[in-house]
Write a protein that binds this DNA or RNA. Structure first.
Lengths: 270, 270
DNA sequence: CGGTGGATTGACTGTGATCAAACTCAGTGG
DNA sequence: CCACTGAGTTTGATCACAGTCAATCCACCG
């Protein structure tokens, strides 16, 4: 853990550390050594904030894994995101001054507290910081738009494939292996996130495994063919798969990547 | 059209007018009469901005109807929103400095141009304005989260029902009739927005009509039973509907509203 | 008029939800 | 140490919702 220093028995980060965590050009401020943001630790299962709770803080994930969820009028959970290192949480609370979603730790976590009013005030003086705020919020908006596009247009298989690729990329950029990793969330949570049932998620992972795109063992995922996953739209029907060598099916999945213009065999006509 | 004044043959609005359009407490600025924002007119079918185009402007809808769309890697349109009076557009361009979506006029429109840099600079001096910016972006984020929840969890019928209710509410708050209005978008666009096909949208509207929840004639929609629509989860199977008086089915739909705790007949176990 | 884009309706099919059963694994306590 | 538990996962059988393909139908416009 490079970021953070001890003070009064707690970890604190300065603005420079916050900026690099967010992948934002560093903001150079006079006396920035005195401007520190406090860390907080949460244990697996603990709630960071709940729906309706008065808003005053933004959070940046320094380490660990979380989920954010919406609860509908019948008490059903809908997973909105799986924040991890470098992600900002709590932005949805700005508008109504109350959080509109709930954040839960899926592993032990270390979060940085950003008092919103203080941050906004700082942004008035340091334009890069203001840019950072607008930038992070806009980025989040674009991410959600992509999510809407995915839920509106893609098949179950394509959703699971993209989910795996996105995870793999995140792990890579955090310095972990992009080829072999552990899922921190249950099938149920993945399903909720992707608009699918847990059974469909499980079956789809098994199908990818059978065809050699990935390896699955409970929560351990091995990415075998990232390119095919990235461009997958639909797998051949399982009937055909049974009597064929796995290589055939894998090739078919990859084919949809090679010729996006022509309608490849088995590709969805979205 | 109360907002706007002529100058150099064009319409301009001051900050106070912009604020009330956005439903934000008015920002009082000295010399606010000299701080004016230009209007632009677009005709039906015209593009306001396209994907990848360099970002520098935000837009506020003063009158008219639009759609914003994402284009996926295969050229398919995905409708993201139907902006109308009081909505802000272009926020998705802040992050990468390029618009990530495309906005198209569905009717003749009058938009107010907000140069982003200028607006951000103003926000540094006038905190209410800064709050407005953060607030509008956060509100958009929450709206998209609700959309994700809807796409992930609701049946086709529930989506269409909520779409109608949301439209009805918007018309009401713009001072139009909430009971009778014209759709400005095609079935195809509604379908894309809701993650459905145009046939499913058409069929669902017809079913609502049959059951007495609404009246449909092409693009003209009459809302008959807003409460039942708001709480609808699933309609009784069409077989049963045919031999029953419409009132029965309507009552069943309304029942799911009355007793949200108990599982009503035909309600989806989401 | 005929032409064209949009809407409706019908018949059929497939994907993914539902219901159900078996299995894995970690934790707990006798 | 092992049986017991319970949460999570896998797999199977079945079915319905919504997608697909196709044939009108309708309104608007040149």
């Amino acid at each position: 853990m490079e970021a953070g220093r001890q003070r009064q028995g707690r970890l604190w980060s300065n603005l420079t550390e916050v900026c690099e965590l967010l992948h934002i050009p560093p903001v150079n401020i006079a006396h920035s050594e005195e401007l520190l943001f406090q860390h907080v630790q949460f244990k697996t299962g603990q709630r960071i904030h709940t729906i309706g709770q008065p808003f005053d803080m933004l959070y940046i994930v320094n380490s660990g894994f979380l989920k954010t969820v919406l609860i509908d009028e019948f008490g059903n959970e809908q997973v909105l995101s799986f924040p991890m290192k470098g992600d900002m949480m709590g932005v949805d609370g700005i508008h109504t001054r109350h959080y509109s979603s709930e954040a839960v730790a899926l592993s032990d976590c270390d979060l940085i507290l950003l008092p919103f009013r203080k941050l906004a005030a700082l942004g008035r003086v340091h334009i890069e910081l203001e840019n950072m705020m607008y930038g992070v919020m806009s980025r989040e908006l674009v991410r959600e738009q992509a999510m809407i596009g995915m839920l509106g247009a893609l098949s179950a298989e394509a959703r699971v494939a993209r989910f795996l690729v996105a995870l793999s990329d995140r792990f890579a950029q955090m310095g972990y292996s992009s080829k072999l990793f552990n899922l921190r969330m249950t099938r149920h949570e993945i399903g909720s996130y992707l608009g699918l049932t847990l059974e469909t998620v499980s079956r789809t992972l098994s199908a990818f495994n059978e065809v050699g795109l990935i390896s699955v063992d409970q929560r351990t995922i091995g990415i075998k063919d990232p390119e095919a996953l990235k461009n997958l739209r639909r797998l051949p029907p399982s009937r055909a798969r049974g009597r064929q060598p796995a290589a055939r099916a894998k090739a078919a999945a990859a084919a949809s990547a090679a010729a996006p213009g022509a309608q490849p065999l088995y590709a969805a006509a979205v």
